[in-house]
Measured scan of single mutants.
Amino acid sequence: RFRLSPAARNILEKHSLDASQGTATGPRGIFTKEDALKLVQLKQTGK
């Protein structure tokens, strides 16, 4: 289970993504908004 920032949680839910597909870069291993946006971008480019 990942620790998600509220913004990251919202983005992941909106795009039906799972945090385990990305890398948490925030302090103390928190999955940040920026991490979520990177994951969305990867999904949109098909990689």
Rank of each mutant, 00 (worst) to 15 (best):
R1S: 15
R1G: 15
R1I: 08
R1L: 00
R1M: 04
F2T: 08
F2G: 03
F2P: 00
F2R: 02
F2Q: 02
R3G: 07
L4G: 09
S5N: 08
S5T: 13
S5G: 03
S5P: 00
S5V: 02
P6W: 09
P6I: 12
P6A: 14
P6S: 14
A7L: 05
A7G: 14
A7Y: 00
A7R: 10
A8G: 12
A8D: 07
A8W: 00
A8Q: 03
R9D: 09
R9T: 10
R9E: 10
R9N: 12
R9I: 11
R9C: 00
N10D: 15
N10T: 14
N10V: 14
N10E: 15
N10A: 14
N10L: 14
N10R: 14
N10H: 12
I11M: 04
L12C: 13
L12V: 13
L12T: 11
L12G: 07
L12Q: 10
L12R: 06
L12A: 08
L12N: 08
K14L: 13
K14N: 13
K14Q: 14
H15T: 07
H15Y: 11
H15Q: 07
H15A: 09
S16D: 14
S16P: 09
S16H: 13
S16F: 06
L17Q: 04
L17A: 04
L17F: 02
L17T: 08
D18A: 03
D18M: 06
D18V: 02
D18C: 07
D18T: 09
A19P: 15
A19T: 06
S20Y: 00
S20T: 12
S20H: 09
S20L: 07
Q21T: 05
Q21N: 04
Q21P: 05
G22R: 01
G22Q: 04
G22P: 02
T23A: 12
T23E: 14
T23P: 05
A24D: 02
A24W: 01
T25Q: 04
T25M: 05
T25N: 05
T25G: 05
T25K: 06
G26V: 04
G26T: 03
G26N: 04
G26W: 00
P27N: 05
P27G: 04
P27Q: 10
P27L: 03
P27E: 12
P27C: 08
R28A: 12
R28E: 14
R28T: 09
R28M: 13
R28V: 05
G29P: 03
G29A: 06
G29W: 00
G29S: 05
G29Q: 06
G29E: 10
G29C: 01
I30N: 09
I30S: 11
I30C: 10
I30G: 09
I30F: 11
F31I: 10
F31Q: 05
F31W: 02
F31C: 10
F31Y: 07
F31P: 10
T32K: 04
T32M: 00
T32H: 06
K33W: 01
K33I: 14
K33P: 02
E34L: 05
E34P: 01
E34V: 04
D35V: 00
D35M: 01
D35Y: 00
A36E: 08
A36C: 07
L37D: 14
L37A: 03
L37G: 10
L37F: 06
K38G: 07
K38L: 01
K38M: 09
K38W: 00
K38N: 09
K38R: 14
L39I: 08
L39G: 10
V40G: 03
V40Y: 08
Q41L: 07
Q41N: 11
Q41W: 06
L42V: 14
L42H: 02
L42N: 08
K43H: 15
Q44M: 06
Q44E: 14
Q44F: 08
Q44K: 15
Q44D: 09
Q44C: 07
T45K: 06
T45I: 05
T45L: 11
T45Y: 08
T45N: 15
G46H: 15
K47R: 08
K47D: 04
K47L: 07
